[in-house]
Amino acid sequence: MTRPHDMGGRFGDGPVIPEQEGEVFHADWHARALAVTLACGAFGKWNIDVSRHARECLAPTDYARFSYYEKWIAGLADLLADTGLVSPEELAGGPVTKSPDADRALKPDAVAGVLAAGGPADRASDIAPTFAPGDAVVTRRIASNIMVDGGHTRLPSYAAGAHGRIVRYHGTHILPDSSAHRLGDAAEPLYAVAFPASELWAHPEHPRDEVVLDLWQSYLKAAP
């Protein structure tokens, strides 16, 4: 078992509550939390995998009780302290000094360009794809990062050790298991892999249901 974010398949969460289209933020602070997080990200001190892992490293009790944007703010505060952009004392309300990075702060006229540029995750790689659509594969038996104990991975535990088949090749993408720990892009082939629901759940709803996950080549082996 990994961390509290890995909740796919879990029992006991109650109904999903639909909501109308059109209300983007339900409180002003939600909007500010999103905007502060994006603006701080523009310094390039961390990547998307580092920031996801920061949220996943919240204590399970905090992860469970925090709302979505509370997780963002907690993860951001931890990243700001880790990277030295803000000191723990400053976060605690102590005296604040001007940052040497202040001249690189995101300006209003740069926002559109930054959001439009995005952050593509495809990278060239020396690792050739060994699977093709239709191939039978099996995932790692344990859904854990094999480089870093307790580290970031994108193989959910519900799909560990499961048999599926390749349905799409996405090209070579940054490996989050490496990137989240600043160990390099380590790009490798990425595939969409379909699993019969009966391979994942004891009581699937329908005999032909499937779950498709995007999985990196190193998560997979050819199925015997």
């Binding site: 997080t37 994006l38 990200g41 001190k45 723990p88 952050g119 970031h152 990137s179």
Partner: peptide, 24 residues
Amino acid sequence: GSALDKDQGAGNDVPMPHDHRDHP
């Protein structure tokens, strides 16, 4: 994540993400 996620971010002087005993 960040708005400039295409880069790996800062150099090796930045600590790896880890479990904080004292969460900032």
